[in-house]
Structure formats: structure tokens, C-alpha cells
């Protein structure tokens, strides 16, 4: 599940409340773990906070043993599982290195390893991709998917909505400390995600005549020979292609759903659904 929202939406505050680091003003948070209850409930959760850091003058080996120990693991078990994770990230040679000797990205991977060592039922990742290069982001996404496949419930917070779309199947959209949207990603996209058509044609006059006053078209914008067309909610790609004038000369066409970012702007900020060109379009 992805917790989404712009900076300052309250994502980290929500997570800190779940982790019992900050207290909520009202309400309560309950878990339904298979293992772990009472005062060892934290052992069922793995947490990667937004503020990245590890004891700089401690070795990777000691950090794994210490943080694993706090999650109820024996020293040897923690270190062995830690080694397995280091191997996945290509860091096994750094097992005895001090944290200060590692690069920022390497330390971030070690930190990820420390929060999954104890095989938590729930894994909370706050901005897990920030500070990672594209290759490391892909590696992290893959490991997150692997853990989810093995049955770990994963709650992932990010303001990078495109990355969340790639790994989450449920989202919780929030703004100014409140829920804006919650549900299955596909359902949300079906409900709010109109299709956007990018079309290039030399026959602009013909296309404009077709689009104007067409009940299946929500809005459209033109930039020379490039057109950006937003379809009405219930109109899908197949239907749009079917109703296009037969002899319209088309050089390029792509039809995609509007992004989570656009949905957020539309729902949370009361933004008008518009075919206006975004940075990506231009």
C-alpha cells in the first residue's frame, strides 16, 4: 500500500504514530498480527524512516547484531540473515566495514537490510527511494515486490507518485493530515483516471471540427501539430479510436491514463481536469 501526498501532507507523522513514536491527538491504532502482541508488537514491524542514518563509527556487522537484537533476534541469526541481505545488494565484502566507510547509497541498503532482518509481518518504508540512483531504485523496487510476494504487508510512503504506481496495488492519498482517497490503485484510476490522448496530425482543421462539441471529449489543447486530448471518464481507448474520422491523417498517437499526480491534483487540490500540457507533454 502506498501512502501518497505532497511534502507536509502528514505521511511521516502518520507513520510515526503507527510506530508509537508520536502520539495521535485522537483515535487509536490497532494491529492484527499473527505473531507478536503485548510489549513485543514492535518485533512484527520493520521500519525504514525517512531520516536516514546509522551509527557512523560502528561496523556493519555490529549494527546488524544490535538492531536485529532489538527486534528479538539472536546475535548469530541477525548476522547471518544480514549477510544474506548484503549479498543481495552486493555488499557482502563490506560486512566488517564501518558505516562511515560506505557511500550514502550503500549505507541506505544496509539500513534497509536492518529493517527486514527479523522477517516482519508489516514493513513500513518512508520515502525508500529518495537518495538512490536509478539502478539502486530498481533493485529496491524488486526487493519490495519479492517481500510482498512472500506475504509481507508493505506500507510505503512517498511523494514520488510515479515510483509508487510501479510497486503498489493499493494507495492511501492524503493531504493536510487528512485522507483524500483510499482504495485499489486500478479502481481509483478507473474512477478518476480519464484517458489522455497525445496525437500528432497535419490535418488540424479536420481534428478540431471532430473534437469541438463532441460529448465524448472532455477538453483539448493544441500546440502546432501536437494535440493533447482528455477523454470523458467513461470513454476508453478503443471507443475513441473507433469514432475518429476514417480519413484523418495521423502521424503519431498514444493513449494513456492520467497519472496519480494528476488524480491527486484533481481530487485533493480541487484542480480542474484539463487537457493542459504538462511538463512531460512538452
Amino acid at each position: 500500500m502506498g501512502v501518497l501526498g505532497p511534502n507536509g501532507a502528514g505521511k511521516t507523522s502518520l507513520i510515526r504514530m503507527i510506530m508509537d513514536i508520536n502520539a495521535p491527538d485522537s483515535g487509536s491504532i490497532n494491529f492484527n498480527f499473527q505473531n507478536g502482541s503485548g510489549d513485543n508488537w514492535q518485533e512484527s514491524i520493520g521500519y525504514l524512516p525517512e531520516e536516514r542514518g546509522l551509527y557512523k563509527n560502528a561496523s556493519v556487522k555490529d549494527i546488524l547484531a544490535f538492531l536485529g537484537g532489538l527486534k528479538g533476534l539472536e546475535k548469530k541469526v541477525a548476522q547471518n540473515r544480514g549477510k544474506e541481505w548484503l549479498e543481495k545488494f552486493g555488499l557482502l565484502d563490506n560486512y566488517r566495514d564501518k558505516i562511515e566507510e560506505l557511500s550514502k547509497g550503500m549505507a541506505q541498503k544496509v539500513q534497509f537490510a536492518t529493517c527486514v532482518l527479523h522477517e516482519p509481518e508489516l514493513l513500513i518504508l518512508d520515502e525508500p527511494f529518495s537518495g538512490l540512483d536509478p539502478v539502486s531504485q530498481d533493485l529496491m523496487k524488486e526487493e519490495i515486490r519479492n517481500l510482498a510476494r512472500k506475504g509481507t504487508a508493505i506500507m510505503l510512503s512517498s511523494h514520488q507518485m510515479n515510483l509508487v504506481e510501479e510497486v503498489c496495488d493499493r494507495i492511501f492519498l492524503m493531504d493536510k493530515g487528512s485522507k483524500v482517497l483510499y482504495g485499489d490503485l486500478e479502481d481509483i484510476k478507473n474512477e478518476y483516471g480519464n484517458y489522455r490522448v497525445k496525437l500528432t496530425t497535419a490535418d488540424s482543421r479536420r481534428l478540431e471540427t471532430f473534437l469541438s462539441n463532441n460529448p465524448r471529449i472532455h477538453s483539448f489543447r493544441q500546440n502546432k501539430i501536437n494535440w493533447n486530448i482528455l477523454l470523458e471518464n467513461e470513454v476508453g481507448p478503443a471507443e475513441f479510436i473507433a469514432i475518429l474520422p476514417e480519413d484523418l491523417s495521423i502521424t503519431e498517437i498514444s493513449i494513456t491514463r492520467i497519472s496519480l499526480h494528476d488524480i491527486f491534483v484533481r481530487v485533493a487540490r480541487g484542480g480542474l481536469l484539463d487537457a493542459e500540457y504538462t511538463k512531460e507533454d512538452l
Binding site: 514491524i45 521500519y47 542514518g53
Partner: peptide, 10 residues
């Protein structure tokens, strides 16, 4: 070292 939050999660 920004370790507080990690430790406080345990």
C-alpha cells in the same frame, strides 16, 4: 547519526 527513529521503532 539520525538513529533515534530506528531505535525508537524497537
Amino acid at each position: 547519526d539520525k538513529m533515534t527513529e530506528i531505535v525508537l521503532s524497537s
